[in-house]
Amino acid sequence: MTPLLLASTRATIPDLITFVVCAAVVLTGALGVVMSRNSVHAALSLVLTLFGVAVLFIEQDAQFLAAVQVIVYAGAIVVLFLFVIMFLGVDREENVAAEPLKGQRPLALVLVVIAATGIIFLAATSHWVTGAHAVAGSTTAGGHSNTYLLGRSVFTTYLWAFEITAGLLVIAVVGAVVLARRPSQVHEEPRDARPAAPGAGGPGDAAVASPPVAAAVAAGTGASGSTTDDGERRPVPAGVTGRAEDGMDERVTGS
């Protein structure tokens, strides 16, 4: 462990300084994300971490990835985050001190710290790296550039993985369209028409007539149940209270 922990033979003072500064930046940013009350501050702290990681990528000869990290993460993902924060309103502050589930926070802290310590301990006992070298191609093969080698690896060993990212992008596009669609005609559709709605819904329904009949029966006999203004009864199953807005029920379920 010692030769790995201490600077390896060719490490220089600038390398050491770079690492220390970047590590400090990364950790400061990470703590900022977790602890800041304001989501905008959290997003800006995230940028700090991402830049720190990008510099650490360069430090480890992954220049292309460093560029991608800055462009994709800081340039696209964080901007997307900020966009959503602004869209939903920036002035929302969270009461960080509030703890909804008693004891959940310390428990989470303890569990994660144990897990992280375990990982570091296990990794240290196995001298950090045990794997076979250069299985998918060397990082220095033939004196080619990092970008060339990365490209070759992506289009040979990881060709199938590269191709199926197309699926991910299709989902992202379709998903964004589906989610951005406003719930159409929610408010136009009167809630009390619900029992009759199946009639309009699909073919082959045999019971178009029965719900209105039942409703008329209820109104006629003056039976109990929550009766709305126009005399139709709302569907109120046992043990359920209807929510006025969109018909989802708050029901008591044990779990």
Binding site: R194, P195, P198, G199, G201, G202, P203, G204, D205, A206, A207, V208, S210, P211, A214, A215, V217, A218, A223, S224, G225, S226, R233, R234, P235, V236, P237, A238, G239
Partner: peptide, 16 residues
Amino acid sequence: RVEAPDPALVSKVPVP
């Protein structure tokens, strides 16, 4: 009876 199921919920459901 306040908690009784609504008649609309115990009628037949359409089966496409």
